[in-house]
Design a protein around this nucleic acid. Structure first.
Length: 563
RNA sequence: UGGGGUGUCGCCAAGUGGUAAGGCACACGAUUUUGAUUCGUGCAUCCGUAGGUUCAAAUCCUGCCACCCCAGCCA
């Protein structure tokens, strides 16, 4: 069976939803797969959003369907245009292309208002004069049924008149609501006559003062889905209890044979990561971080600046799967695996010495010579770049030891080591400063050991990276630790338990240092990704200037050597 | 004491009556001019628990236990 060019029979379902979609398609219950990405434009996206968007976009794509990007902007007090604008860029970065971009407030509110009138006429909705407190008091509790509103049995005519007057602005904010007439004693609290419209005079970022009544989520969301032709409304399991309401509104508000289905996936939580607009905003305002795109933040703009890739994020969320519980918590290392995995494929290798130790090659004379460094050993067609070797080079201080621990296969007194891409050298003498520190090393090199055509037969255990005195420039390196101390695995929970956020913050989550980078890196552009050989992955930060290249440490390489 | 969910290795997670996939993490080995990558090997006699049905159960039935979510005119 072919749907939109996709052979449905060849699709291997990867979760229950996909099995259901195949059944629906085959049974003709839906003609294609339409999903939607419905952010409320009220804050930055986190890694968790990637899961929601990946599921919505990729499920549709798998079946040849389409996905709408719809601003779920029915609450004028929380929403701002700048967020809506940023989402297009975020989505593009993630590699998702919406079929269409709409603001629900502009595209659907008129029609949704008409649906409300229709429901009133059908006796499915009524205008209620109870105050917010009274509504709450009448809702009952988890174990006790609610009480019916005294306004519940107004006639459709009266309700319609009142509702129109609400829209015209005859009543003050909060004085009336439109409510669905469902069942005040329903065991599911969400079914106890949910609010459909509230009155609030508040300018909206898109529709200004066009409305003084605003539709509420339980009503507006399913109606938007219907109007858009959504076939599967995929949301997180926090909405599981609302499915029954969703279905009620689809039946009573839309009523057609076609019915979108709400299905829910687990929320994704990462250990040790703080989310929550309120908390992060505090850190921004107090200057704990540099902004919403601080590389330590779990926002999309943050991790992007840190050097994480869209592919890594998507592979990660896919590895976690659909989920069966409300919230799935995975260790940070699970994410890091995918970050390293992708970066390993795409990052250009370069040599950078973070903590330089000077080495004089006593038997080398003359000009520097060029050496070749592979851009990526896993991918030969990424080629090589030129670096240099000469009389004076710098190696990593920790790559030399006066008292080497067991199995230390770097440079020691009288020992040999290979300089990556160049020659094997032997340390003959250690020169000390007056204060006892090592000033520099005197080494000899073996001309016949040149990388690529080593004819010496010499063996050495280790290879270390280096830069030549005539081929480096000083750069700034920013290194990050998790913002939250390790012991706070679930920061949100700790916060809820009353732990002060300042107690949870890692004191030195950002450190800056200088490093010697090979000149090749002068070509770097903002966001370019590199692997500094034997150290880790880095990317050029947007704060860089021609005089000061700043590299963010994305993540270190794995290191199985234990001292 | 209501409703909605969930219980399979430290963390995710397949499994839908035929004798416990896979990934992360971890541990060893091999290869390696990155102690990276790659590649091997190991890692649940057992599926919350107690019974029952069956030749056969993580999968079916019954009871029990545990954990999560829900009482915004937020989404």
């Amino acid at each position: 069976m072919i749907v939109n060019g996709i052979d449905i029979d060849s699709i291997v379902p990867e979760n229950e939803l996909e099995e259901e979609i195949i059944e629906d398609l085959k049974a003709g219950r839906s003609k294609e797969v339409v999903t939607r990405c419905p952010p409320e434009p009220s804050g930055y996206w986190y890694i968790g959003h990637v899961k929601a968007w990946t599921i919505n976009f990729e499920t549709a794509k798998k079946f040849g369907g389409k996905t709408f990007l719809r601003m779920d902007d029915s609450n004028p007090v929380k929403e701002e245009g700048e967020f809506a604008d940023s989402y297009m860029a975020d989505l593009e970065w993630l590699g998702f292309k919406p079929y269409k971009f709409v603001y629900a407030s502009e595209a659907y509110f008129d029609e949704i208002y008409n649906i409300a009138e229709k429901m009133i006429k059908n006796g499915d909705a009524y205008v209620c004069d109870l105050s917010a407190e009274e509504v709450s008091a009448c809702r009952g509790t988890l174990t006790e049924p609610g009480k019916e509103s005294p306004y519940r049995n107004r006639t459709p005519e009266e309700n319609l008149k009142l509702f129109r007057e609400m829209r015209e602005g005859k009543y003050p904010d909060g004085s009336k609501t439109l409510r669905a007439k469902i069942d005040m004693s329903h065991p599911n609290i969400n079914m106890r006559d949910p609010i459909m419209y509230k009155i609030a005079r508040q300018s909206h970022y898109r529709v200004g003062n066009k409305w003084c009544i605003w539709p509420q989520y339980d009503f507006v969301h399913p109606m938007e889905d219907c109007l858009e032709g959504t076939t599967y409304s995929l949301c997180d399991k926090g909405f599981q209890d609302h499915r029954i309401v969703y279905e009620w509104f689809v039946e009573h508000g839309w009523g057609k044979k076609f019915a979108p289905k709400q299905r829910e996936f687990s929320r994704l939580v990462i250990e040790n990561v703080l989310t929550g607009k309120r908390h992060l905003k505090k850190l921004v305002n107090e200057g704990v971080v540099s902004g919403w795109d601080d590389p330590r933040f779990p926002t999309l703009v943050g991790v992007r600046r840190r050097g994480y890739t869209a592919k890594a994020l998507k592979d990660f969320v896919k590895s976690v799967g659909w989920g069966s519980v409300i919230e799935v918590t995975v260790p940070y290392s699970a994410l890091e695996y995918y970050v390293r995995n992708d970066l390993n494929q795409i990052a250009t290798r370069a040599m950078v010495v973070l903590d330089p130790l000077k080495v004089v090659i006593t038997n080398y004379n003359g000009d520097d010579e060029e050496i070749l460094v592979e851009n990526n050993p896993n991918c030969e067609n990424l080629g090589t770049h030129t670096s240099k070797f000469g009389k004076i080079v710098y190696i990593e201080r920790e790559d030399f030891s006066l008292n080497p621990p067991p199995k230390y296969n770097r440079l020691v007194e009288g020992g040999v080591v290979r300089l990556k891409g160049a020659y094997i050298i032997k340390c003959n003498k250690v020169i000390f400063k007056k204060n006892g520190e090592i000033d520099h090393l005197e080494c000899e090199y073996f001309p016949e050991t040149k990388s690529g055509n080593d004819t010496s037969g010499m063996k050495c255990k280790g290879t270390i990276h280096f830069v030549s005195e005539n081929n480096f420039f000083e750069v700034t390196i920013r290194e990050f630790k998790n913002l939250i101390k390790k012991e706070f695995i679930n920061p949100a929970k700790s916060l809820a338990e009353g732990v002060n956020i300042n107690e949870m913050l890692e004191p030195d989550s950002l450190t800056e240092r200088k490093a010697y980078a090979e000149n090749f890196l002068k070509n770097a552009k903002v966001e370019d990704k590199f692997q500094f050989i034997r150290k880790g992955y880095y990317c050029l930060d947007k704060d860089s200037t021609p005089d000061n290249y700043i590299f963010n440490s994305t993540i270190s390489l794995k290191d199985s050597y234990k001292f």
